[in-house]
Computed example of a mutant assay.
Amino acid sequence: MNWYEKLNQYFPIVEMKSKEHMDTLLKEKGSVYYKDEGPYHVLMYAEFPNFTFVDYLFVAKESRGMGIGSKTLQMLKDKKKPIILEVEPVNYEDTDTEKRLRFYSREGFEHASSIGYNRRSIATGEENSMEILYWAPNNETEEEIFEGMKKMYEDIHTYKDEHFYGESYEPVEDVLTFKENDKKDVLKQFSNPINN
């Protein structure tokens, strides 16, 4: 199974880019967009001067508990710049969403509760809300994370979108919002050692 098939089996269709889109990012944005893969993982990420964005992180079920996810993230943490990523809100019918949040909480990520992120999937037409998590080695603010998300959305998510999908995603100002203390912290329940 190739790297794209692994991602496609794991991530919901509303979150997936087309293979053509990702191949083009790797080729045309090769100084920013990268793929790191091994037998048990696939990491797609964009590295900007002020932050790194994790587009997709897949760790094979049979290798969970071996520290592969932590080692993969450590490679990015060693760059000493903020790491931003999108996660699905907790869905208690899908235990992977809870495991994912617990993992990122253990890895020192914080929830950017003031950032709203909601976009329509071109593939399904559904509205898709995501939560923004970030790792801030230099105490970066949520405003800085918000600016990074806007740059990433315009440079990566919507890169040549009309060419790949026949239509464009909504403009960044319709997708990302910033409101102080807008939502509850989705990682709070995992930061209590009794729950871990």
Rank of each mutant, 00 (worst) to 15 (best):
M1P: 07
W3Q: 03
E5H: 09
L7H: 03
L7G: 00
Q9T: 05
Y10I: 06
F11C: 04
F11R: 02
P12F: 01
E15L: 09
M16I: 05
T24K: 09
K27P: 03
E28Q: 13
K29G: 07
S31T: 10
S31Y: 08
V32T: 15
Y33G: 03
K35Q: 09
G38I: 10
P39G: 02
P39A: 10
H41N: 12
V42Q: 03
V42F: 04
M44W: 00
A46E: 04
F48C: 06
P49T: 06
N50I: 09
F51H: 06
T52K: 00
F53K: 05
D55T: 07
Y56W: 10
L57P: 01
L57M: 15
F58I: 10
K61C: 08
S63H: 01
R64G: 08
M66E: 12
G67W: 12
I68N: 00
T72P: 00
T72N: 01
L73Q: 02
L76I: 07
K77A: 08
K77C: 13
D78I: 10
K80D: 12
K81G: 00
I84N: 00
I84G: 03
L85S: 04
E86G: 07
V87K: 04
V90F: 10
D94C: 15
T97P: 01
T97W: 05
F103W: 14
R106E: 14
G108Q: 09
A112Q: 05
S113R: 15
Y117K: 11
R120L: 03
S121K: 04
I122F: 09
A123L: 13
G125F: 12
E127R: 09
M130Q: 09
L133M: 09
L133C: 07
W135V: 01
N138V: 08
E140Q: 14
E143G: 09
G148M: 02
K150N: 08
K150F: 08
K150H: 10
E154M: 13
D155L: 09
T158S: 11
G166M: 11
G166C: 14
S168W: 03
Y169F: 14
E170H: 13
V172Y: 03
T177Q: 11
K179R: 14
K183D: 13
K184W: 13
V186F: 02
K188V: 14
Q189W: 08
F190E: 01
I194K: 10
N196T: 10
